[in-house]
């Protein structure tokens, strides 16, 4: 009983911080989404939800967001998997350094890295500059200011998260199991397919989920790398809140984004648990 009291006492500071920084703003957001005014919280109306739901443009934007999230998650996981696998298995004394290197990009803000990608992929950027000076192309390739640029930048920016999540999820990988399979006559491909991949799957799926969630909620990178052409829910919420000053609609869109994607996460985690069981 005393233990329980202690646990509660220890939880209180954290819970209070959550209440102030997360739960209260969320409640405020929910309240604002039902407001009859676009700015202050008065009255009650479902108009903002109705406006968003009957507007085909927002459906398209939601679809864009989903596509971007899935693409980025897929590519990031494929690229991050070999790195994570190597880091998990290596016995090199440089392992710590290599792991730190793999997640080092997180030390720089996503905005700064987005600007980096603008320099690399721009019309007069590193790639186009090189190709043009080698006379391989005449006019610059359109590598940024579109959804391609946004996808490339998001993949790179979010890869360290995928690597970290996978490393954490690779706990069940074991060299002994691989050796046993090899001794029983499985070739390396078969070992990978039957042993390594299934055992690493929980880590892969966690990594994919993390990247997906971060990608669909991103707005700086799609906005800057997309040249304004990439419409995702994040950019729409930003624009409703700061340009057209329709805070209630922005709130309604945020709540819908939240509901939509938290249900995706719940379903996903159920599936994940079943897989692990």
């Amino acid at each position: 009983m005393r233990d329980r009291g202690l646990v509660l006492a220890l939880l209180i500071p954290g819970l209070l911080a959550m209440l102030a920084t997360f739960i209260l703003p969320m409640a405020w957001l929910l309240r604002a989404s039902f407001s009859t005014s676009t700015m202050v919280q008065v009255g009650f109306t479902l108009d903002h939800y109705r406006a968003a739901l009957v507007d085909p443009f927002y459906w398209k934007v939601a679809l864009n967001t989903l596509t971007l999230g899935l693409t980025v998650a897929g590519v990031a996981v494929v690229l991050a998997y070999p790195i994570a696998l190597f880091l998990a298995r290596t016995t090199s004394r440089w392992r710590g350094v290599l792991t730190a290197l793999a997640v080092a990009p997180l030390l720089t803000s996503a905005v700064v890295r987005t600007y980096g990608w603008m320099v690399i992929l721009g019309d007069r950027g590193v790639i186009n500059g090189t190709l043009q000076s080698l006379s391989i192309i005449e006019t610059p390739l359109r590598l940024s200011n579109n959804s391609f640029g946004a996808t490339v930048a998001l993949v790179e920016i979010l890869m360290p998260y995928a690597i970290l999540a996978m490393l954490a999820g690779f706990g069940r990988l074991s060299v002994q199991l691989e050796e046993a399979a090899a001794m029983l006559g499985a070739n390396p491909l078969r070992v990978f397919w039957r042993i390594v991949l299934p055992l690493s799957l929980p880590g892969v799926l966690t990594g994919a989920l993390l990247v997906f969630v971060l990608a669909i909620s991103s707005f700086v990178t799609p906005r800057l790398m997309g040249g304004g052409r990439v419409f995702v829910l994040g950019t729409e919420v930003f624009s409703e809140a700061t340009v057209t000053l329709n805070w209630s609609l922005a709130a309604a869109l945020s709540v819908m984004l939240l509901v939509l994607f938290s249900s995706v996460i719940v379903i996903y985690q159920r599936a994940l648990r079943r897989l692990e069981a």
Binding site: D123, N145, R223, G226, G227, G228
Partner: peptide, 18 residues
Amino acid sequence: VLTWEPAPDCYAVVQSGE
């Protein structure tokens, strides 16, 4: 139009020759 969302702003992209 190359970009509808010039970054960092609509002046710098002219200054830099982008």
